[in-house]
């Protein structure tokens, strides 16, 4: 079977496009970096792709709020294409700045489970870290095993870096959170690594730096009601190999995970991308 075609957006300050394309290719995808304006101008069509990735970066310098200007370009120019993409059952991921973009276009968290397709209404935001600082530091993440998210199946806990200044996830009211929680859309949270695996998730805000940004309910990432659209602040692509884990010289980088591409050196982040590729293959 032909490898699923992955569009990895770039341009205007997106800067994790190379590695995001690379990790899809390591797990059997056929990733291409495509400039946003190719989709905006119509010289390329989203329809020709099976997975869309909005990578990290500083689109438009994140002035006027992270992801906002890129979000606007997509919301105004790609509305129909994006709606059709989700309606066709194709997965979308936004990482870091890409997550911020998806939140500001309204793709995340999106409307409710009864009418799950995109309506492009912004319902949440990602705002300045409580610390007031952009920081690059490693965190521990735990995933909701019951989540409909197709990207995170079978993943329990991973370490990976966060690299952001605006990663505090907020919504106007607790009922907003409760509705998402009820549908298991609060997919991934920052957890204390000393807790047993599977017992780390809590709604009580964790202290800095366990939660690097003061996110409400320690949320690191969410999905939409379809489970196709997923966004998170941390960078799973940055731990595609064990040699990127800070503990690798201590011989304690988490594993064991093996793969054709990387042997026993596969890192914990790669499974997320493999899940999407396998999902597409399984639904052909």
């Amino acid at each position: 079977m032909a490898a699923p075609k992955v569009a990895v957006l770039f341009g205007f300050g997106i800067n994790c496009d190379h590695e995001t394309a690379a990790v899809f290719n390591l797990v059997g995808g056929d990733a291409e970096r495509v400039h946003v304006n190719h989709f905006v101008s119509g010289t390329r069509s989203l329809e020709d792709f099976e997975i869309l990735a909005v990578p990290g970066g500083f689109s438009f310098g994140d002035h006027l709020g992270s992801g906002r200007l890129m979000g606007n370009r997509m919301r105004f120019a790609l509305r129909e294409q994006l709606h059709a993409f989700v309606a066709a059952g194709k997965p979308i991921i936004g990482i870091c700045n890409g997550f911020q973009v998806l939140v500001k276009t309204g793709l995340l968290p999106g409307p409710d489970a009864q009418n799950p397709l995109p309506d492009f209404v912004q319902r949440a935001s990602l705002t300045l870290n409580d610390s007031g600082r952009y920081e690059d530091r490693w965190v521990t993440l735990e995933f909701d095993a019951e989540s409909p998210c197709i990207w995170t199946k079978g993943i329990e806990r991973i370490d990976c870096p966060v690299r952001h200044g605006e990663g505090k996830f907020v919504m106007p009211s607790t009922t907003d959170f409760d509705a998402l929680a009820a549908n298991n859309q609060l997919v991934v949270r920052y957890v204390d690594p000393s807790t047993p695996v599977g017992k780390g998730m809590t709604d009580q805000p964790l202290p800095f730096p366990l939660s690097p940004n003061g996110s409400m309910r320690n949320i690191a990432g969410i999905c939409d009601a379809t489970g196709l659209v997923f966004g998170l602040m941390p960078h799973p692509e940055a731990v595609y190999a064990k040699w990127l884990h800070p503990d690798h010289t201590r011989n304690t980088a988490p594993g064991p995970l093996t793969s054709e591409a990387l042997g026993e050196w596969e890192g914990e982040g790669l499974q997320l991308f493999r899940n999407a590729v396998e999902y597409v293959l399984g639904n052909r």
Partner: peptide, 8 residues
């Protein structure tokens, strides 16, 4: 406060 890991 510097990103030291972009490009993976």
């Amino acid at each position: 406060q510097y990103d030291h890991e972009v490009i993976a």
